Simulated scan of single mutants.
Amino acid sequence: MSALTRSVTLAASLLLASSLALAQAQKIVPAQSEIGFTSKQMGVPVDGKFRKWDAQISFDPKKPEAGSVNFTIDTGSAGFGSPETDAEVPKPVWFNVAKFPQATFQSSSLKALGGGKFEVAGKLTIKGNVKDVVVPVALAQSAGGVTVATGAFTIKRLDFKIGEGEWADTSMVANDVQVKFKLAVTGVAPL
């Protein structure tokens, strides 16, 4: 059912969580980072998140075009906080985790929009289906050396065959799934 929302997972992941291209390694701070998604089931928003994912980020805010952002999300880690719903997510009709255990995002371009805002374009792959996505990202830096990247974008679950068969009916589960992310990253050059 709501399993489709995890599909947002990957996309959000790409979020880029920037970093410097000088000497420091860019690292995600897992305890302060999250990739989530929201879908609507019978018109009611249902939130979920991915518990297991990884990102490789190479990003200098002064030279974003030279950067890259790659995410790998374990689709079986999608959870809604409901044991019944969480048990449905790995099934073939939703994420088909046995055949497609991971969703990925690979950036193709990063562009500065000004004011700490960036646009990351790339390929999102879920259940073997590849789509181009554009992810808006806002960066905020603190005195403690942590850069927080936030953003949200919407995907169409049926483009990725999430919710097949009877679940393809969008009157039960909406086609739009919003992917949201908050990534805390160390090692990012100043904006």
Results as ranks from 00 to 15, higher is better:
Lys40Pro: 09
Gly144Arg: 00
Ala168Pro: 13
Pro101Gln: 04
Lys131His: 07
Ser107Met: 08
Lys180Arg: 02
Asp132Val: 03
Gln32Thr: 09
Met42Arg: 11
Thr104Tyr: 00
Ala55Trp: 03
Thr85Ala: 12
Ser171Lys: 15
Ser142Tyr: 04
Lys99His: 13
Ser18Gly: 13
Leu139Ile: 13
Phe71Gly: 11
Ala3Cys: 02
Ala21Gly: 14
Thr72Phe: 00
Pro64Val: 09
Gly122Gln: 05
Ala87Asp: 04
Leu158Val: 07
Ala55Thr: 14
Asn129Glu: 15
Gly115Leu: 12
Lys156Tyr: 00
Val137Tyr: 00
Val135Ser: 04
Gln32Asn: 09
Lys131Cys: 02
Ile155Pro: 03
Lys123Cys: 10
Gln56Leu: 09
Gly163Glu: 01
Ala174Phe: 07
Gly76Arg: 06
Val130Ile: 10
Val120Thr: 08
Ala189Pro: 09
Ala55Ile: 15
Ala17Cys: 11
Glu119Lys: 01
Gly144His: 00
Leu113Ser: 05
Gly79Arg: 01
Ala112His: 01
Ser7His: 03
Gly79Ile: 10
Leu16Thr: 06
Ala112Arg: 00
Ser171Pro: 08
Leu10Gln: 08
Lys49Asn: 06
Lys49Pro: 11
Gly36Thr: 11
Ala98Arg: 05
Val177Arg: 01
Ser39Asn: 10
Val188Trp: 00
Ser18Trp: 07
Asp176Glu: 14
Leu22Gln: 07
Thr85Glu: 15
Val134Pro: 03
Phe59Leu: 13
Ile155Leu: 10
Ile35Ser: 07
Asp176Cys: 12
Phe59Ala: 12
Ala31Asn: 12
Val97Phe: 15
Ala87Val: 00
Glu84Cys: 00
Ala184His: 00
Lys63Phe: 06
Ala174Trp: 06
Lys91Arg: 07
Leu183Pro: 05
Gln178Val: 15
Phe105Asn: 04
Pro64Cys: 08
Ala66Thr: 08
Thr186Leu: 12
Ile126Pro: 01
Trp167Val: 10
Ser171Met: 01
Ala121Gln: 09
